[in-house]
Simulated assay, not measured.
Amino acid sequence: MATLLRKIGLIRLHDRDTDGAKHQGSRKASKKNGGKQCNAPSNESILLQSDHHHYHSSSHHQQQPHNHKRCEQPPTKDASKDRQQPQQQQTGSKVPAGGSSNGSVPGQLPNKQHCAQVRSRRLMKELQDIRKLTDHFISVELVEDNLFEWNVRLLQVDKDSALWQDMKETSTECILLNLNFPDNFPFSPPFMRVLSPRLENGYVLDGGAICMELLTPRGWSSAYTVEAVMRQFAASLVKGQGRICRKVGKTKKAFTRKEAEATFKSLVKTHEKYGWVTPPVSDG
């Protein structure tokens, strides 16, 4: 019996020593790790982490090839045409040299249309303003219903002038003038000449040409109106001591446009050479 008890005691002592050695080994390992006790992950947690990592890596690999494939996909023919269409719209279609696709010279037709519209609107407004005048200074008639050619009647001049006295004595109701408006009016002056009666002096020259700086391209301004030009002309007639011609043989000779144009061209050259301040008497 005693022998049996001793054997049991030895077995217990052996187990206790074995457990103590295990505990001492774990304590030594913890000391080597800086005194921190490391809890090794269980097999279940390792499996969960590996499954989570596999899920993310698999989803990333599923998306990444799709994006990479979309970036490296070469453009189709339709897409290249879509990119070329805006460039063709900006540059426009090719036009043959010397004309447009419809056979017209580029830039001429739109400019002509624009100038015609500007000229028409301006002259229509001029007509309306003249008809609203209350002093009946001038009146306008269209030549053969042509908006771009007017016959203007100057009904009044300075009543203290010799010209006004001549008009009363000769029963001359008005001084008739003709105005032709160019294509680029109001940016160029109209060509104005006297039709009747035949005048002397007053800056009226051969053919009825008028010596006035504002009627030249250099002296003209688009702000000038027909009314303003006519008032300036009436003042220049009096200032230049204009008179109605009463000489025998000359009163029946009418002014002509061809002569007026030649005279006006000549006087413009003369004044460009000598200036407009003190023009020669023979040139107006």
Rank of each mutant, 00 (worst) to 15 (best):
A2S: 12
A2T: 15
T3S: 14
L4S: 10
L4I: 09
L5M: 09
I8V: 06
G9T: 05
G9I: 04
L10P: 06
R12I: 14
H14Q: 14
D15V: 13
R16V: 10
D17F: 14
T18M: 09
D19P: 01
K22D: 07
G25D: 11
S26A: 13
R27Y: 07
K28G: 07
K28N: 09
K28I: 07
A29E: 03
N33C: 06
G34N: 07
G35R: 09
K36E: 15
C38V: 12
A40Q: 15
P41D: 09
L48H: 13
D51C: 11
H53L: 12
H56A: 10
H56C: 11
S58Q: 06
N67P: 05
K69S: 06
K69N: 04
E72F: 10
Q73L: 12
P75K: 06
T76S: 08
D78M: 12
D82Q: 14
R83V: 15
Q84N: 13
Q84P: 12
Q89F: 13
Q89H: 12
Q90M: 15
G92I: 10
G92R: 12
A97C: 03
G98W: 02
G98F: 01
G99Y: 02
S100Q: 01
N102P: 02
N102G: 03
G107M: 04
G107L: 03
Q108P: 00
L109K: 09
L109F: 04
P110E: 01
P110T: 02
N111P: 02
N111H: 08
K112I: 03
V118F: 02
S120R: 11
R121N: 06
M124W: 08
E126F: 12
E126N: 09
I130Y: 01
L133P: 00
L133H: 00
T134Y: 04
F137E: 08
I138Q: 09
E141T: 11
L142R: 08
V143R: 06
E144L: 07
L147N: 00
F148I: 06
E149W: 10
E149N: 11
W150Q: 08
V152N: 12
V152G: 13
L154M: 11
L154Q: 10
W164R: 10
D166W: 11
M167T: 05
L176H: 03
N178T: 00
N178C: 02
F181H: 01
F185V: 00
S188W: 00
P189W: 00
F191C: 00
F191D: 00
V194T: 01
L195G: 01
S196C: 03
N201C: 12
G202N: 08
G202E: 08
G202L: 10
L205D: 13
L205E: 15
I210E: 15
I210K: 14
E213T: 11
L215D: 00
T216N: 02
R218G: 02
R218S: 05
A223C: 05
Y224Q: 02
E227R: 11
A234Q: 05
A234G: 03
A235Q: 09
L237I: 03
V238T: 05
K239D: 09
G240R: 07
G240W: 08
Q241G: 10
G242V: 06
G242W: 07
R243M: 08
T251K: 11
K252Q: 12
T256R: 02
K258P: 00
K258Q: 01
K265C: 07
L267V: 08
E272S: 15
K273T: 13
W276G: 11
W276D: 15
W276E: 14
P280C: 11
P280H: 13
P280L: 14
